[in-house]
Computed example of a mutant assay.
Amino acid sequence: MSKQYDKELSVKELAALPDEDIDFSDIPALDEAFWKNAKVQMPDRVKTPLTVRFDSDMLEWFKSQGRGYQTRMNAVLRSFYEAHRH
């Protein structure tokens, strides 16, 4: 089902939507062939060691997601950077 909204939804509002209210029709199905040939590709970028300070609750949340939390934090920062650099 798809539904038109009068305003853009916040992240909290989107998270509260029941699955049946989300329109997935524009997302192609991923079959066995896709997963058979899928590979994770990490960007070949040089990373610079850095000492930073983050809010404790945010850091603990990223760490609670398991190994690779620094990579995920970098991905979030990169996403913000990509969205705002132009």
Results as ranks from 00 to 15, higher is better:
82 E>D: 15
27 I>V: 11
22 I>Y: 05
5 Y>N: 09
24 F>P: 00
26 D>T: 11
35 W>H: 07
53 R>K: 13
71 T>A: 10
8 E>R: 11
73 M>V: 07
71 T>M: 09
40 V>E: 09
52 V>T: 12
84 H>S: 11
60 E>G: 01
75 A>P: 00
76 V>S: 14
49 P>E: 06
73 M>W: 03
70 Q>N: 13
86 H>Y: 10
35 W>F: 12
2 S>N: 14
36 K>H: 08
25 S>A: 14
82 E>P: 00
60 E>N: 09
25 S>I: 04
76 V>G: 07
58 M>K: 13
28 P>M: 07
49 P>I: 03
3 K>D: 02
80 F>K: 09
81 Y>I: 14
14 L>D: 05
86 H>F: 12
63 K>A: 08
72 R>E: 00
15 A>E: 13
39 K>S: 04
53 R>D: 08
40 V>P: 00
51 T>G: 05
65 Q>K: 10
47 K>I: 03
86 H>I: 10
68 G>A: 01
71 T>W: 05
64 S>K: 06
23 D>S: 03
51 T>N: 10
76 V>R: 08
33 A>P: 00
73 M>R: 01
40 V>N: 08
20 E>Q: 12
18 P>G: 02
5 Y>A: 04
22 I>N: 09
12 K>Q: 15
10 S>T: 15
24 F>G: 06
76 V>D: 09
34 F>Q: 02
14 L>K: 09
35 W>Q: 02
69 Y>C: 02
45 R>F: 07
21 D>G: 01
48 T>Y: 11
28 P>S: 08
83 A>F: 04
18 P>F: 03
15 A>F: 14
17 L>N: 04
13 E>Q: 15
81 Y>S: 12
3 K>V: 03
65 Q>N: 12
33 A>Y: 05
70 Q>L: 06
61 W>P: 00
20 E>C: 10
60 E>T: 02
84 H>F: 13
28 P>G: 05
35 W>T: 02
19 D>T: 08
61 W>N: 11
83 A>K: 09
73 M>G: 02
33 A>L: 12
55 D>W: 02
41 Q>H: 06
51 T>D: 10
3 K>I: 03
31 D>R: 06
57 D>A: 15
44 D>W: 03
4 Q>S: 14
49 P>Y: 04
10 S>L: 09
52 V>S: 12
9 L>W: 07
14 L>N: 11
71 T>Y: 10
47 K>M: 14
84 H>M: 15
7 K>P: 00
17 L>K: 03
23 D>P: 00
66 G>A: 04
28 P>L: 08
